[in-house]
């Protein structure tokens, strides 16, 4: 059962050259207790997707249409005040650059305290304090750190604090936007291990937004791949790695250096991402695609279920991939 259902979510950024279509009809389901990775290059709309789901896009970003159903309620229809009740309590976010997400002039303790107090005004103060200690411990930090200011903490520790804050009100879903970018490799691994642990312990749904396919493919059950504002492929990690259907995913896989394949030549993806402000007819990837045909310039491919649980937006995915029928 999907806890989070996103349908037709479309977001544009108003620019001098017209509207830039940053998110184009996103359809996405996030199941209970599942970790879903959202992958793409910079500018492909993955962060916009995260913020649009939470409806916290600021001008010049404007959400044009779409529904976001969270356990039955449509977030898109709620008023600001009602929405605020759902954020943090049911769906929380670990923002990009979490290192800068903490207020430098408040101690860690008061920042987490505030978040809990606003959402659960009836909880007694000493109970909140006790909960902060448990939270910090559960993310692998000694609770003595709660009395320090953020500048005393290293990058990885700040990241842990931000994760603790996201967990403060026991949400069902966490959107982690590039949660480990900018951290050192081993710290990254420790933070991923922490997220995985939390996911299992709290039965959380995590939407992991990242550009690192190698990392995401090792921790996520399912992966969605975005290109120029659209989701082009969605499926279980194993199937995508074994049998990518979309030409973009295939190209992305062969452009990665992996530790097993250091003797294999990697191939870049030629060409550039099309401008988002252009009105686009047909497939957005066609200019860089080896398999393009006439149809690609005429009709925009829709995300279709090609094999069980494996979706792809390409006219020719059935021919190109090794599809399992039934």
């Amino acid at each position: 059962m999907a806890v989070l259902e996103v349908r037709g979510l479309t977001t544009v950024y108003k620019t001098q050259n017209g509207d830039a279509l940053a998110l184009d009809c996103l359809d996405l389901d996030l199941d209970k207790g599942e970790m879903l990775g959202l992958i793409g290059e910079s500018g492909c709309g993955k962060t916009t997707a995260g913020y649009s789901i939470l409806r916290s896009i600021k001008y010049p970003g404007v959400i044009l249409q779409g529904t976001v159903r969270l356990a039955g309620t449509d977030l898109a229809q709620l008023s600001e005040a009602e929405l605020r009740k759902h954020l943090w309590k049911e769906i929380a976010m670990i923002p990009q650059c979490a290192m800068n997400a903490l207020n430098p002039s408040h101690k860690i303790n008061s920042q987490i305290f505030e978040a809990i107090e606003v959402h659960e005004p009836k909880t007694p103060k000493n109970e909140i304090q006790a909960r902060i200690d448990t939270l910090l411990n559960s993310v692998g930090l000694n609770s003595r750190w709660k009395d320090s200011y953020p500048h005393k903490l290293s990058g990885g520790m700040k990241q842990r604090v931000v994760i603790a804050m996201a967990l403060a009100c026991n949400p069902k879903i966490i959107i982690a936007d590039e949660a480990t970018t900018g951290l050192d490799v081993l710290v990254q691994a420790q933070i991923m291990a922490l997220l995985k642990k939390i996911q299992i312990e709290h039965d959380l749904g995590i939407l992991l937004i990242s550009h690192d396919l190698a990392m995401v493919s090792q921790v996520c059950e399912r992966i969605g791949i975005m290109y120029a504002g659209s989701l082009v492929e969605l499926g279980s990690t194993d199937r995508i790695l074994e049998n990518a259907l979309h030409p973009y995913t295939k190209a992305l896989l062969t452009s990665q250096v992996s530790l097993h394949g250091i003797h294999k030549i990697v191939k870049p993806i030629e060409g550039i991402v099309p401008s988002l402000t252009e009105k686009f007819i047909g497939c957005k990837f066609r200019d860089r695609c080896k398999h393009r045909r006439e149809l690609c310039g005429i009709e925009m491919p829709k995300l279709e279920e090609i094999e069980r649980g494996h979706w792809c937006a390409c006219h020719f995915s059935r021919e190109l991939g090794d599809v399992i029928h039934g």
């Binding site: 692998g140 930090l141 490799v185 691994a189 991923m192 995985k196 190698a214 990392m215 090792q218 530790l259």
Partner: peptide
């Protein structure tokens, strides 16, 4: 041990996560 941890993280993050204590102490060292 540091190189081992680097290789393991890159090679098999899943494995690193489940048997992390073999590679590196948890918590922050600064």
């Amino acid at each position: 041990p540091y190189t081992k941890a680097l290789v393991q993280v890159c090679d098999n993050l899943q494995g690193f996560i489940s048997e992390r204590e073999h590679y590196i102490l948890d918590g922050e060292v600064d």
